[in-house]
């Protein structure tokens, strides 16, 4: 098992395996931290409601970017089409979002 680990480390160094779990665990830590921050902001009734809403949406977008970049490997090379596909989807989603917030009323 130990020899196997060394072989793996060797392959990581030579770039044949792109990374170990370190970045993924950091991404997990950041996600937990951002989530806690959002829950604490909402639990804190002293803050202004509009401020909380904007703040937690920014935290959500940030967390989504972190997870896409690290867990879904978007930060790695050769992900042009991946980014294009998701950005196209996000464009439609954001258009629908703007429509819902500014154009639709009941």
């Amino acid at each position: 098992m130990e020899a196997n680990q060394e072989q793996v480390q060797d392959r990581v160094k030579r770039g044949r395996i792109h990374e170990g779990p370190r970045n993924h665990i950091i991404a997990f830590g950041i996600s937990i931290f951002l989530t806690l921050l959002a829950f604490m902001a909402v639990a804190n009734s002293a803050l202004d409601a509009t401020f909380i809403k904007i703040f937690i949406v920014i935290l959500a977008v940030f967390q989504a970017v972190i997870q896409l970049a690290f867990w879904m490997h978007m930060k790695d090379r050769g992900h042009f089409f991946q980014i294009l596909f998701l950005a196209t989807g996000a464009f439609v989603a954001i258009t629908a979002f703007i429509m819902a917030v500014y154009w639709v009323w009941w």
């Binding site: 998701l86 989603a93 629908a96």
Partner: peptide, 27 residues
């Protein structure tokens, strides 16, 4: 790669569901 195209479609799907929810959340 094809799966990412599907995820792009999923983004549209959930984006529109989110937009609907945001428009109706106070009704």
């Amino acid at each position: 790669l094809g799966f990412w195209l599907f995820l792009g479609g999923e983004t549209v799907l959930f984006g529109t569901l989110f937009a609907t929810f945001i428009a109706l959340r106070n009704s």
